[in-house]
Design a protein around this nucleic acid. Structure first.
Length: 629
RNA sequence: GGUUCCAUAGCUCAACUGGAUAGAGCAACAGCCUUCUAAGCUGUAGGUUGAAGGUUCGAGUCCUUCUGGAAUCACCA
């Protein structure tokens, strides 16, 4: 049958070309992605051949075969029935036979309830394995000169209180998303807008002036952000006292809130700050710097960083100008009292204030200015804001207002909205002292990690410096993985009483597997074992080994999927699956003690590649992996 | 009240974007260390996917209604 032979030849030729191209331009498409697109083509041809019908490729559904069934890829026959006009089983049989005859890599097939399972040759998987092994950055597409520029905003702290658990989720998500974009061939700029201006800042400044007695981080030994936070709380307490006092004197609640001396003084301070009063500005600078020093410590512990930091105190004026310009052009409206609004009622939204009647700017004004400056600085193709879902409405409005103001790039801003971290009894409330503080939590994790390591005696014989480094890596691995394995958009629960686990589906579990693999690699190196050479003809792989190759190979698809969905949890769940797979393999098979030399080398290589993928995947989550633990 | 989001094992989370018998971990119980790191591996048990309808070959996933929860609707940020 020359027809069939021709097909076979064409198919193999294409596969070779694709593999070749893969090596040349480091295209992210793994071999099996190419295989699948070719498989789809063959199915289209098969349906034409068998049933004389032209079909749309979109109707072809191919998925990885579920573990309980034999096979590698599964074709769902149901969508094809209206062309075959036969039962699902018969259609599967027809197509299975056609594909087995026409595609060299397919060894055999089976049909179960309309699902056509295709089994590929060992050789196919070994080739895939080799391709992955030879690519140092397998699964990752690093940015190049054609890359798009993506800005990722995250953290966005207020300078009046320390970071808490919610901020940790934000920071980890932001950092991880930035890494994932980068791995998907984007040029990424990590940015942070610091909300360093406004009435809330004046509150802590005022309280410090009144009751601080000149206390500084140096004099008290208190971390700067905590010190400032302390006075912010102090303000609130005194303010409430005063309100109570006024109410008992017969004033209404609203009246009391508006006319309490403290709030009036804070407002006066804000006015002075905006007017550039030397004394107020100097105090503001001093206290903000305390906070920044404190934040830096926390950021460093978390292992997050930024390429460019914007300060609201710089950007709000730009925002104000843009709003006034918009007003001139008639895009915005001015009320009688002088306040400026965006009327979004024709978009199904409300009216939104942009400038107060006294001319001062609000949160939104500042965001307009910041976005403008960012576009000016980077001409981004995409701007992702990692901000909690409580601000869904705010970002919806921001985007529309920017569009109304005539900025075409506004359509490229996106809000990556994530859920709140809740305690078992509900939201964290600073008033009830249930806020889980970032620094405390990290310290707790570190001491738990230290305790477990000591109990297990794993780090005996290492230097203190090494031990501390490993413990920190494990503690942060546990915390980060815990927060990142959950789908960002979902609210999640954190129970401070039951500390974060170190066993099971956790960061340390994954790190441990990596450390074991590195231990193997060290032993192999001591024995001068060559990982590179094995003769694949001499191998007879177990399904477990093939399964592991499949899992490794999936990494490339997972990275792009995580990028498209902007979801680090996809990476986290993937690496967990991979590690479980590997641990079973490690348990069931000898590696360095295997007698068959080729098999030994293959298994070592398989282990080392698994380790490489674990490290890459964890890096995308911002999690380090230790060489020993 | 309007709008948006959520609800899966006792607890914390998955489920290849509509596919096969809904999977993991924790907690509980029973096993596996003289052997490449037991932070591991293997079992047992645990479910009417909040409820009721609908769409179709097929629904945890899509639509409608209801129940329960969260967020938001500030001249706060």
């Amino acid at each position: 049958m020359p027809y069939t032979v021709l097909f076979k030849t064409l198919f193999s030729f294409k596969a070779i070309v694709c593999t070749f191209a893969l090596c040349l331009n480091k295209n992210h498409k793994s071999f099996d992605m190419e295989f699948i697109s070719n498989l789809k083509e063959k199915i289209t041809e098969g349906v034409t051949d068998l049933y004389g019908q032209e079909i749309d490729e979109k109707l072809i559904q191919i998925q990885n075969t579920r573990k309980d069934f034999t096979g590698d890829f599964t074709v769902v026959t149901f969508p094809l029935l209206r062309f075959s006009k036969k039962s699902p089983e018969q259609t599967g049989e027809d197509l299975g036979k056609y594909l087995t005859d026409n595609i060299e890599e397919i060894n055999s097939f089976n049909v179960i309830k309309g699902f056509l399972n295709l089994e590929l040759s060992q050789n196919f998987w070994l080739d895939q394995f080799k391709t992955a092994w030879q690519n140092e950055n397998f699964g990752i597409r690093l940015p190049d000169k054609n890359s798009k520029t993506v800005l990722v905003e995250y953290s966005s702290p207020n300078t009046n209180k320390p970071l808490h658990l919610g901020h940790i989720r934000n920071n980890l998500l932001g950092y991880s998303i930035a890494k994932i974009f980068e791995a998907n061939n984007n040029k990424v700029i990590k940015t942070n807008i610091v909300n360093d201006r406004g009435i809330h800042i004046c509150k802590s400044m005022l309280a410090w002036q009144k009751w601080g007695n000149g206390e500084t981080p140096e004099s008290s030994g208190m971390k700067g952000d905590f010190l400032v936070g302390k006075y912010y709380v102090k303000f609130d307490q005194e303010y409430k006292k005063e309100i109570q006092q006024l109410i008992s004197e017969g004033k209404s609640k609203e009246e009391a809130e508006q006319n309490a001396r403290l709030i009036l003084q804070a407002r006066e301070m804000l006015r002075k700050w905006e007017a550039g009063d030397d004394e107020v500005v100097a105090l503001w600078k001093k206290m903000n710097n305390w906070v920044y020093d404190g934040f830096d410590v926390t950021y460093k512990k978390l292992g997050v960083d930024f390429d460019k930091i914007y300060y609201e105190s710089d950007t709000y004026k730009v925002g104000k100008e843009l709003v006034l310009k918009g007003l001139e052009k008639g895009k915005l409206i001015k009320e009688e009292d002088g306040s400026v609004w965006a009327d979004l009622t024709n978009k199904g939204l409300d009216k939104k204030i942009l400038l107060r009647s006294d001319g001062t700017s609000v949160y939104m004004t500042q965001d307009i200015g910041t976005a403008y400056l960012r576009y000016k600085d980077y001409q981004f193709d995409k701007h992702v804001y990692v901000v909690g879902n409580e601000q869904d409405y705010h970002f919806k409005v921001l985007k529309i207002v920017l569009e109304e103001l005539g900025f075409p790039w506004a359509k490229n801003i996106q809000h990556l909205s994530y859920g709140m971290v809740e305690l078992p009894e509900g939201k964290m409330k600073s008033r009830e002292g249930t806020v889980v503080d970032a620094d405390d939590l990290i310290a707790d994790m570190v001491s738990t990690a230290r305790q477990i390591s000591q109990e297990l005696g794993k780090l005996d014989g290492l230097s203190n410096e090494e031990i501390e480094k490993i413990i920190h890596t494990i503690a942060l691995g546990a915390l980060k993985y815990f927060l990142l394995k959950v789908d960002p958009k979902k609210n999640m629960v954190f129970n401070p009483k039951e500390s974060i686990d170190f066993n099971g589906n956790t960061g340390p579990f994954i790190q441990y597997t990596y450390a074991r693999i590195q231990s193997l690699a060290r032993k192999a190196a001591e024995n001068k074992l060559d990982t590179e050479s094995y003769q694949k003809e001499k191998l007879n792989l177990d399904t477990k080994e093939v399964q592991l190759i499949k899992s490794i190979n999936k990494f490339a698809v997972i990275v792009s999927e995580a990028g498209e969905n902007q979801n680090p949890a996809i990476i986290a769940n993937y690496v967990y699956e991979l590690v479980k797979e590997y641990n079973q393999f490690y348990h069931d098979f000898s590696i360095l003690k295997e007698e068959n030399e080729d098999l030994k080398r293959f298994r070592l290589q398989l282990s080392v590649l698994t380790g490489r993928v674990i490290k890459q995947a964890m890096a995308l989550l911002g999690i380090d992996v230790p060489e020993k633990m």
